[in-house]
Amino acid sequence: MNCIIVDDDLFYCKTLQSFCERLDLNLLGVFSDPVKAMGILSEREDIDLVFLDIHMPDISGFDILKSNPKLNVVISTMDETKAIEAFDYNVVDYLLKPVTLDRFIRAVNRAKERLSGNGNSASYKETPAPNASDNTNPKEIYVNVNKRLVKIELDNIYIIEAKGDYILIKLIEGKNQVVHTTLKSIMSKLPENIFVRVHRSNVVNIKKIVDIEDSSILINKEVVSISKTYRENLLSKLNLIN
């Protein structure tokens, strides 16, 4: 299996390189500079697998994924908050640093399965990896709850609240969900004409609003405050008769 490593951190380049050698993978190159990696990715078509970091200077791992939607990629990062976004690009696996050899082997096995056609690559090869920003009207969202990807219908959400490292997704029906991510991150996945920030800690589904007062909103029998900063934006999204 031909592979390359793209990581600006020398320590992890060495780590992944030693893992590749142990598994007899054919390592074509190790790139601490993502720009150079983009170069080789555009030149060669025989790269089976890329071990890719997310946070790098100038170009992020996601930029590489966007430009190369057909690549088989194993993400290797210390950022646990980007997993859902990464799986939107149909990555093979998502490894958290520091990566262990056992976990690396499992990721390579998944890649082998996909390359041999036994993995979930069929639909992937036929259609490019979905890009959240292209998907303007999603009906649902998948969130990672205790290592399970749980589907939530967007129409069932009425408020999303920031809770430190987590968000609380309040649902009209069913149990509310606590997810390890940020408001900013989940908002990038939601239709911006429907989900609107009304406070530093709150996003509301405007379809569920009952009424709006000066500094508060009644939504699904719950009152939430609107801060001045976000009020104008909220009003601009509503179908107002002046």
């Binding site: 060495k14 780590t15 262990t100 050899l101």
Partner: peptide, 24 residues
Amino acid sequence: SYAENITEGAPDLLTEMVFILKSQ
């Protein structure tokens, strides 16, 4: 322990990784 485990049987690699850590 992490560096020792991943470089098991390769003392030169362990040394190299320890010095990379030191410089970082």
